[in-house]
């Protein structure tokens, strides 16, 4: 199977280039990560992040034939050849497929992604009905892989101002939590033309999310809640 992979080591290369690889004996059980690991066994300098190998740690987001995804849960069979692999777009490249995710993490931290409760703590668990808990499904599962935010044109152009889909999904995860008591502060901090409202509902984020989550819908929910609070 043929691959064309983005290579760039700023220590050695003047500019990025695409390197062609040919991998024999590819079988239908193989994930793209398996293929990359075999290529790395041939060329140790090929650099990418990975860890769990099963789509739960979020390390190996990359751009595969023009679309962001996790290499460890992308079967190689069925990919158009040569399989073109690039780093996730819009973030500075450190080396090969490894990008600097600082801005992405910064936006995540900015939405105060933690439960805030002002009442004194009871000695038992907070009660939450199964229906209330269900509101968190499709939100808490985010693995912070960055596939969504780095597919979002609004995030490419305004990574300093626009929170991006991943962070906004988390903002909604806490707004939607019946235990949380910081709704007003959360909404206030998202007000203004950029942080939330740069989203133009292009849906790229939802299209690519490898966990099947829906940031666009979460963003819509935040907007709705804001309107409701204003009236």
């Amino acid at each position: 199977m043929r691959f064309s992979i983005y290579r760039f080591n700023p220590e050695a290369d003047n500019e990025p280039y695409m390197q062609e690889f040919d991998l024999p004996d590819v079988n239908s059980e193989m994930m793209l990560l398996d293929a990359l690991l075999r290529l790395k066994a041939m060329d140790e300098t090929l650099t990418f992040r990975h860890s769990c190998g099963e789509g739960v740690c979020g390390s190996d987001g990359m751009n595969i034939n023009g679309r962001n995804g996790l290499s460890c849960i992308t079967p190689v069979f069925g990919l158009k050849e040569p399989v073109e692999i690039r780093p996730m777009p819009g973030l500075p490249v450190i080396r090969d497929l490894v990008v600097d995710m600082s801005q992405f993490y910064h936006q995540y931290r900015s939405v105060k992604p933690y439960l805030v409760v002002h009442d004194p703590e009871p000695e038992v668990e907070y009660l939450q009905t199964p229906e209330q808990r269900e509101q968190l499904d499709g939100l808490y599962e985010c693995i912070l892989c960055g596939c969504c935010s780095t597919s979002c044109p609004s995030f490419w152009w305004n990574p300093d101002y626009f929170r991006g889909p991943a962070a906004l999904l988390q903002a909604w995860r806490f707004l939607a939590d019946s235990r949380d008591q910081a709704t007003a502060e959360r909404l206030d901090s998202l007000d203004g033309p950029y942080r939330l409202f740069r989203c133009h509902t292009i849906m790229n984020c939802t299209d690519v999310c490898p966990k099947g989550l829906n940031p666009t819908k979460a963003i819509g929910n935040i907007k709705k809640l804001m309107l409701k609070q204003m009236t």
Binding site: Y114, L115, V117, E121, E123, V124, E125, Y126, L127, Q128, T129, P130, Q132, R133, L136, Y140, F174, D177, R179, D180
Partner: peptide
């Protein structure tokens, strides 16, 4: 410690009576 984890936000699944 489980109660503490609930208090810091862990989204435990729930029983009909609202408990973990």
């Amino acid at each position: 410690l489980v109660v503490e984890l609930d208090h810091i936000g862990v989204p435990f699944s729930r029983l009909d009576n609202g408990k973990i």
